[in-house]
Nucleic acid binder design. Structure first.
Lengths: 389, 389
DNA sequence: CGCCATTTGTAGTCAAGGACAACAAATACC
DNA sequence: GGTATTTGTTGTCCTTGACTACAAATGGCG
């Protein structure tokens, strides 16, 4: 536990800091790096030079900045290091080549007829990876593969413990993909990766304490960012807000026997009331908006109360700066923002709530892929010196 | 936000690491420090020598260890640097001189007739501090004063936002004490400091992910340790588990209108059923144990279900290694441990629950003082080189 | 009792890495 | 065109931990 600290560690951390600035904060000039790190000009020059030599950054000619003084070279990520992010789901496997700076370079979606078995999914992924690599410029170097799994993933060995929607249980899926593809594979829960992505590149940029809840087809998942890093917990299973049982004001408002958040705040029930078979989020939002049915409004109001109670519990415990809602929960927020905020305020300690806002997620459908890419890039970002092109 | 890293920072961190080992883990020989840090022998020798010169550690003659090889000098905290920890409460102000290694050196309790105003409390504290300093050995150097406040404390400026039990609102209490005493003063919520103390010196030693809930006279407070450090949240108000509204299986089991954990799981209600005016925890536990009243058992069972729901929500979200219960909640745990565990298991994701245990707090009544002392020592522990004797 | 293996302390040297100072380069402003 | 300002570049210095060699202190064993 005590971090032994050697002189070389300073270089490693400083390289990581500089790469991080360019990758996450899209800092663009070397002078900005100097100002933001507080390091000496000459040191930054050496660090950037090393990262350029490693093939992780590129320096370009200064761009006219209309400021006094010698212009500083532009710094941006080298396009060559990439990862492949993959999200296996019940209806399709989606994958993308992602570069530094969350640049989604190439994206493919392979629909499947039936819910894939692990073996099916491995085969599809192996194929998709081959295709993506073949279609990418020759100079791309795939560092790793990142999997966003709709289920619980053990942090220690990336074992998929239980992915209810896919019906997978205790599947060493990451290891299977690794064997099939021959590249390092990392994996984590999809919602946790969504939280990470929103924190780094989305609605939560620059916010170091936030909670994220996403309403998807497979229920409600989430994640928390604490002091700028993802809350993992002991086994890596943290963030299961959807399985929580929030208090319900009026017993009649609880309509399921278990009373978990994801059972009560159910997208399917609203779709049902609207008489829709299926819809994507914009369609659903529009349908709710235009519907004249009182039953829909009553149901939305009921769900809102339960969602608010769950969010209130989370706010009391985390005192976050931001609550980010994605998918169906973003639709819920958009339906009546002030009312949801008021309902949350009613269930929180005033001090803990003050200064907290609730916002919709910003990254759309690339969110999970960006999160998975971040995970795959992590070893490189932590220790850029180890990168071998 | 990016941590600029200079060469001198290495020394600072290594000094902190060594001091931390002796302070928190009570490491006793220089050779152990070498082994645990992974640093070089000669480096550790230099670090320890510097800490000795600073008056923070003492080296003693080697003690017979019955092991082959040259014996290594014993290392222990220097008794001179101390802090004064203070816990103002409704019925008394408790304070203690605490040295490194959580050594409670001298402890005083000043009962008060009425709930103290901030001004009352400041006067008492000023007096108690004078007394403690006068009664301490001349060589003691008081680094700071740490306050454990039964209420919400803003992290940025230590303002007491709301201490319901004391009736204080928006009181700059830490600043008032600082003015009166002339020493640096730090402050935080009492339950958060309890969590910190249990993590470092109590039931949660060596556990980096835990949650702590305490049932006290003023309700239920708590805190979470995430990756080895206290979860503070944006403003410092995190950990308000007591204000959460857990789901209740059977509506009849909810007996209050708000339905918050601390209203439902109420010590007062059980005291009432037992026909007791007041009792300390051991007395209460004994009374519950020996009571033949079915009403008591029913009420305990009811409360247990609600406590379990709240703990289940927390376990789903934090996936902690340990749940530590203090005060009245420890009494609840002791009443029927397997039943409480079963009830929590029923409300959690199996993977998140697995490997989690629920244990009673270990530190008794010194807990808050040890936590407050830790807070007061923190600047010294973070940067021992700055210490000026 | 003496020798050896083992462990640890001690002293001196070395290498890594960031700070700093001095100078050069490139821009805006007047 | 001259000046102030900002930044890149180069060389030197300081801090710090690693490493090596040797000394010291212990237990084990013949």
């Amino acid at each position: 536990m005590p971090a032994p600290d050697h002189v070389e560690g300073v270089r490693r951390r400083n390289l990581a800091t500089v790469l991080d600035l360019v990758h996450h904060r899209r800092v663009s000039s070397r002078a900005d790096v100097t100002a933001l790190t507080g390091l000496n000009r000459s040191t930054v020059a050496a660090l950037v030079a090393e990262l350029v030599a490693l093939g992780l950054l590129e320096e370009g000619d200064p761009v006219a900045s209309s400021r006094v003084g010698r212009p500083s070279p532009v710094v941006h990520p080298d396009p060559r290091p990439v990862v492949i992010a993959v999200n296996p789901e019940v209806d399709a496997v989606t994958a993308a080549v992602v570069g530094l700076g969350a640049r989604v370079e190439r994206r493919v979606r392979r629909p499947v007829d039936a819910v894939p078995t692990p073996e099916d999914a491995v085969a599809i992924i192996a194929d998709v990876v081959r295709e993506l690599v073949a279609a990418s410029p020759r100079n791309r170097r795939v560092a790793a593969i990142g999997l966003a799994i709709p289920g619980l993933v053990r942090a220690s060995d990336r074992l998929v413990r239980w992915a209810s929607h896919l019906g997978w249980r205790e599947v060493p899926f990451a290891a299977m993909v690794e064997d099939a593809v021959g590249l390092p594979v990392v994996a984590d829960n999809d919602a946790s990766l969504g939280a990470l992505a929103e924190h780094l590149f989305g609605a939560g940029r620059g916010v170091d304490d936030l909670i994220y809840l996403n309403g998807g087809a497979s229920g409600i998942g989430g994640g928390a960012i604490v002091r700028g890093s993802l809350l993992t917990g002991r086994g890596g299973y943290a963030g299961e807000f959807g399985q929580n049982r929030p208090g319900v004001d009026d017993p009649h408002n609880r309509v399921t026997s278990r009373g978990t958040l994801e059972d009560e705040v159910s997208r399917a029930r609203v779709l049902d009331l609207l008489g829709l078979e299926s819809a994507d989020e914009p369609q659903l939002a529009a349908a709710i908006e235009t519907s004249a049915s009182p039953a829909v409004r009553v149901e939305m109001r009921r769900q809102q109360g339960i969602l608010a109670a769950a969010l209130g519990n989370a706010v009391n415990v985390f005192n976050p700066e931001l609550v980010v809602l994605g998918g169906y929960l973003a639709t819920h927020l958009a339906w009546d923002p002030p009312s949801l905020e008021d309902a949350v305020r009613d269930t929180t300690v005033p001090a803990a709530w003050e200064g907290t806002s609730i916002v919709p997620a910003a990254l759309g459908e690339d969110r999970l892929l960006i999160g998975a890419a971040e995970l795959a890039f992590r070893p490189l970002l932590r220790d850029p010196g180890k990168w071998n092109p």
